[in-house]
């Protein structure tokens, strides 16, 4: 009973202990089961705007000969990246998040409905350009890949540890620019491995093609 006025209301206290993102987690599990059933390998690309996520997908699609690729493209406002990838003949589901800074598992679920008929073997999810927020959202992917360009600076693992902690792979892009920027590869990798000792690192340049074969080989395995 409400002690003040006797109005018949009473208070109850519930102990919950549920993750704030448990609803996202449920969708992610659903996605994971669906992807497995369709035998599609799913890669979540996380990186800042301009790190080279779209270019990495383009380069991979040009050289890939192991089955079909499809892309879920997250973009806060435009569909420009989706158009870039469609131009290569790839099936693309564009998710315009309306300013939201990350994709969540439910958005990915809805987007995959548009792609499932194309029967892809490899599905890239290009997350919204942002090294911070996407790290909290499991999408049901098989592999989480951080794409970091050397022009962004070697301290990024220290500033955005969550993304590096979640990832299995770090793709370091634009390494052709290493002679022109203050970027210590050793320092960057040492920071990244403090957070995630088993992180696999693949340095590459999409401009010169250096390191690209290692990335492709990694995807095949």
């Amino acid at each position: 009973m409400c002690e003040t006025c006797g109005c018949g209301q009473r208070k109850i206290t519930l102990t919950v202990g549920e993750a704030l993102l448990s609803e996202n987690e449920r969708w992610a599990q659903k996605n994971r089961a669906w992807f497995k059933k369709r035998q599609v390998k799913v890669i979540n690309l996380i990186g800042s705007p301009g790190a080279g996520k779209t270019s990495l997908i383009e380069a991979t699609a040009r050289l890939w000969n192991q089955g079909k690729i499809a892309v879920i493209e997250g973009d806060p406002e435009t569909q420009r990246d989706a158009e870039r990838l469609s131009a290569l003949g790839l099936p693309v589901a564009a998710v315009t998040t309306g300013g939201v800074c990350h994709l969540d598992a439910r958005m990915v679920h809805q987007a995959f409905h548009q792609l499932v008929e194309t029967d892809p073997h490899l599905l890239f999810i290009e997350n919204v350009g942002n090294l911070l927020c996407p790290a909290d959202f499991d999408l049901g992917e098989d592999l989480s890949v951080v794409v970091l360009s050397v022009t962004e600076g070697e301290d990024k693992p220290e500033k955005y540890p969550q993304a590096f902690r979640r990832a299995q792979v770090l793709v370091l892009t634009k390494i052709d620019l290493l002679p022109y920027v203050d970027f210590s590869l050793d320092r960057c990798l040492s920071l990244a491995r403090q957070i995630n000792p088993s992180l696999k690192v693949l340095p590459l340049s999409l401009k010169t093609g250096e390191g690209l074969s290692d990335w492709l080989e990694f995807l095949r395995s």
Binding site: K11, I12, T13, L14, V16, G17, A19, L20, D136
Partner: peptide
Amino acid sequence: ELELRQVEMEV
């Protein structure tokens, strides 16, 4: 952690 621990409500 990122979790909802406890909720108090009036019924």
